Computed example of a mutant assay.
Amino acid sequence: MLNPEVAPGPFTDLDKFVFESWGYLLIPSVLTADEAAECYEASRRLHADRDRAFGQIGRGYETEPCLEKLIDHPAVLPKVRGLFGDRFILQASWNTMQPAHGGVGGWHQDGSSAYDFKQLSYPVPLIQLRASFLLTDQTNPGTGNMELIPGSHRSQVPLPAEIRSERGDVPIGHVICAPIGSVLLFHNGVWHRTYRHDGDQDRYTAHYVYSPPWVRAADRFDNNDEFLDNTTPMRHALMGAFERPDAPYGASYEPLPF
């Protein structure tokens, strides 16, 4: 199956061309099976007190060390840096669960319903760059895969309303089939949905959303001081805990400590 696969680490000129063309990249097998299994168990703990239904929980990195390590994973962070430069933040981290035998999700673009990113300019600007760590094997369709529409971040027209309301199929939908531990990196403007899940094992995915430093965090109103005191300098900086956040984030705002 055709996938926009790229190597882990440095953001190459070819990576940029593929991302600009399709709106997403796939980095296969970033985590080992054991690392993915550890993150899967951490995800189960996060969701233990909620109903077994599709949903997401934020800030898992504060209590689960294996999820904290993914914030600045060396296979992924250079790609984020290549697209945003040296100044960006972790805008949110969401851990999502799709129960076994779950149906397809609704088509959408990422962003804020309070003010859609498409209102800012055309094409839809890159405001949220999502890195999704697959914690289950998804080498076949029907395993809780992500389905995206390649290049749709540049479409001048929205996905038809009737398709969205009926959760209908589209002829150019691309179901991502990838092994456990792979990472899908995609632009907020790409139309996407959760594909159906026919298997018997609940599907968990760890998402990390990166944004310019002036974007308000979505998974927290404030940072956890204890977490900031105990994490690494890079992760501390990625939390956007600025001592003096000047309005333009100008001279007083330090780049990330690469």
Score class of each variant (00 low, 15 high):
D34Y: 07
R220D: 07
R235V: 00
I180A: 09
S29P: 01
E254L: 08
L126C: 11
P150Y: 08
P99K: 07
A131P: 10
T32Y: 06
S121Y: 02
T231S: 08
L31I: 02
Q56M: 09
A251N: 10
G173Y: 04
F221Y: 10
D202L: 10
F54A: 10
D34V: 07
R244A: 13
Q138N: 11
M146I: 12
V30P: 10
D116E: 10
C39R: 06
S155V: 00
I180S: 11
R244W: 08
A33I: 03
Y40Q: 03
S155Q: 03
L148C: 04
A131C: 15
L134D: 03
I57Y: 05
K69A: 15
G55A: 11
F88L: 08
S93P: 01
Y253C: 12
L46Y: 05
V80A: 13
G142N: 07
G55D: 15
T232K: 12
Y122D: 11
S182I: 00
P233H: 09
Y204L: 02
G199K: 13
M239D: 13
Y204M: 02
F227W: 14
E35C: 01
D198F: 04
L90I: 12
Q156D: 15
E35N: 02
H197F: 01
I176R: 13
R193A: 03
P10K: 14
S152D: 08
S21A: 05
I71W: 07
P8L: 03
S211I: 05
V183R: 13
L77Y: 12
F11H: 15
I57L: 15
G173C: 01
N3G: 02
D51N: 08
R59F: 00
V124C: 15
P8W: 05
R216V: 04
G23V: 02
T139S: 15
E20C: 01
P74H: 09
L67W: 10
N145H: 12
P4C: 05
N145D: 07
R59A: 03
N230W: 02
G181W: 06
R81M: 06
V190K: 10
A114C: 10
F133Q: 08
D110C: 00
L14H: 14
T12Y: 11
E68W: 00
I57W: 06
F242Y: 15
N140C: 01
A114W: 09
A37S: 13
G85P: 03
G189V: 07
Y204E: 06
V215M: 15
I57K: 12
R50T: 13
W94Q: 09
L14K: 12
G55P: 07
D222C: 06
A92P: 04
S165E: 14
D246R: 03
Q138G: 11
R45E: 05
I57Q: 13
G173P: 01
L256I: 11
H236I: 00
P248R: 09
R164K: 13
H187A: 06
P78G: 06
R154C: 09
E243W: 10
S132Y: 02
L256T: 09
M239P: 02
V30N: 13
S155N: 11
L83H: 12
Y115K: 14
Y210P: 08
I89Q: 13
R87F: 03
G85V: 01
R235S: 04
P179N: 07
T32S: 15
H207G: 00
E243C: 05
H153L: 02
A36S: 07
N95W: 01
E38F: 01
G58C: 00
A131M: 10
C66T: 05
L77Q: 14
D51T: 05
